[in-house]
Amino acid sequence: MHLVAQSLDFALSHRPEIVVALRQHIALSAAAIAAASAICLPLGVAASRRPWGRSVITAVNAVRVIPSLALLAFVLPWLGLGFTSALIALIVLACPPILVNTDIAFRGVDQYAIEAARAMGMSDAQILLRVQTPLALPVVFSGLRLASIEVVASATLATLIGAGGLGDIIMAGLELEQPAELLVGSLLAALLAVAAAAAFSAGERLAVARS
């Protein structure tokens, strides 16, 4: 109870810093997810339709084994400290789950439904929009959800290259040996990850209901 009281006390007394860190964290994560989606959703659809798709997916899956901390260390020499470096590292991190799930989602659409749609005189664009996309949405969204959790969690490391975020609070807590501060930072990061996942689940329900 002692720790909880201390944490609450810390949170209330450091509200401005916490809000800044939270904002930075959200901005960084949202930008990374948005950029990764913009790149990987179309790429994933394209990969699912072409023979080279498989090799791209295999290559991207190989990138996945690189830990997020190593990624940050990787971009540092080229881009230096700050927001851009952290953003790029997080985009690289977010891409594989989005790309892989999009590819799998579109490959998984019942080929006979597609054949029937084509035979009924739907154009390629109509098949993509009216048949493939609605059927692929759930798996695409689960990729987005996965990516958002990874990004929000890994964005806590952005503090190491001076990009701020909730990592600032966590690191300060570690250095100053303040468990309450550490707990507040970690808890907020965890809540943010859950919120991001929930947001994508809600988005999925909405999209599936409307399609």
Binding site: Y112, E115, A116, A117, R118, S123, L135, V208
Partner: peptide
């Protein structure tokens, strides 16, 4: 080909109904 196919009904063993649509939406496709 798109015009050609509109004039031809096509029925296959695997049916290929659109699982995300109701029966009436399926039938109303064309």
């Amino acid at each position: 080909p798109v015009r050609l196919r509109r004039g031809m009904g096509y029925v296959i063993q695997n049916v290929g109904l659109f699982p995300h649509m109701t029966v009436s939406e399926n039938i109303a496709t064309v």
